[in-house]
């Protein structure tokens, strides 16, 4: 995979909810090299504080040279990014990591919780573009309340998938967890589940898949300094003992290769 460091111009700013922001950036080299599940490292500001880049999944990458990130404001770095304006340049580096391995034959079930929805739009698009029959595919999106889910529904609909939504407070879709929806669905044997979201959610998705004999790929997070295998700071426990590094072995893993606590 080729990696690039680009000064990417912000061409669109969308405040999708009180906490959630979507940026569209002009980064032609990164866009051309990107695949679903890849991430980028972005510098918030130009100073020494905050020092490190912040990792974000690619929400979209298009053939017109644009990429999108979709993030929640949780701290200083994301707050600074949320205060950027259209026309400003961001220092972006990527695409990085190992993405989703798309199984072109199997039915797909995409499960996204909260900001874990971010990488799934790009994935839905690629699966759709793969041109096969996808009427059996399913997308399940969830979040705390409607602001986490509703603004993204149209984007997923254009890829023609059947869509189910759930929110913690019931303000959009049904009330409950994405895993409740997943449990209630009769997935065809051989379905591949592609998931991203908070760790407790992923642990439940993994459990459901194990129970039903489905294969499951998850995109996970860790703290990161370099994003490219140099600092060795992003390790997680591997199911077979030892460690895996999220930035180079992941961020997308087969769920069974990881250790799940819950």
């Amino acid at each position: 995979m080729s990696q690039h460091q680009e000064k990417a111009r912000i061409i669109r700013f969308e405040q999708l909810s009180a906490d959630n922001v979507r940026l569209t950036l002009e980064a032609p080299l990164i866009a051309a090299a990107a695949a679903p599940g890849h991430f980028v490292m972005i510098r918030a500001g130009n100073g020494q504080d905050p020092l490190l880049r912040r990792p974000f999944s690619l929400h979209q990458a298009s053939s017109n040279g644009q990429i999108q990130i979709y993030f929640r404001i949780v701290g200083r770095g994301t707050d600074m990014l949320a205060h950027c304006r259209v026309g400003e340049l961001l220092d972006v580096f990527g695409p990085l990591g190992r993405g989703y391995r798309i199984d072109r034959q199997a039915p797909a079930c995409l499960v996204g919780g909260g900001l874990g929805i971010a990488p799934l739009l790009f994935l839905a698009k690629r699966i759709c573009q793969s041109g096969r029959d996808h009427h059996r595919d399913l997308v399940i999106l969830g979040g705390r309340s409607s602001g986490d889910v509703e603004p993204l529904v149209e984007d997923f609909r254009q890829f023609g998938r059947s869509l189910q939504c759930a929110t913690d407070d019931g303000s959009f879709g049904r009330q409950g967890l994405v895993t409740d929806v997943l449990k209630a669905e009769q997935l065809e044997p051989g379905t591949v589940v592609y998931a991203c979201g908070p760790e407790p959610m992923l642990a439940r998705v993994h459990r459901i898949c194990v129970d039903r004999g489905l294969s499951c790929q998850v995109s996970i997070e860790s703290v990161m300094a370099c994003g490219m295998g140099a600092c060795l700071g992003c390790n997680v426990d591997a199911a077979g003992g030892g460690y895996l590094h999220v930035c180079i072995d992941g961020p997308v893993f087969n769920a069974e290769d990881l250790v799940w606590n819950s």
Partner: peptide
């Protein structure tokens, strides 16, 4: 060497701490 368990790094003011454990 396998190095230390996670979490191995954390950002601090104008710096970072690491305990990679010489992996």
């Amino acid at each position: 060497r396998q190095g230390n368990p996670p979490q191995r790094i954390v950002e601090t003011a104008c710096g970072m701490l690491n305990a990679i454990g010489l992996q």
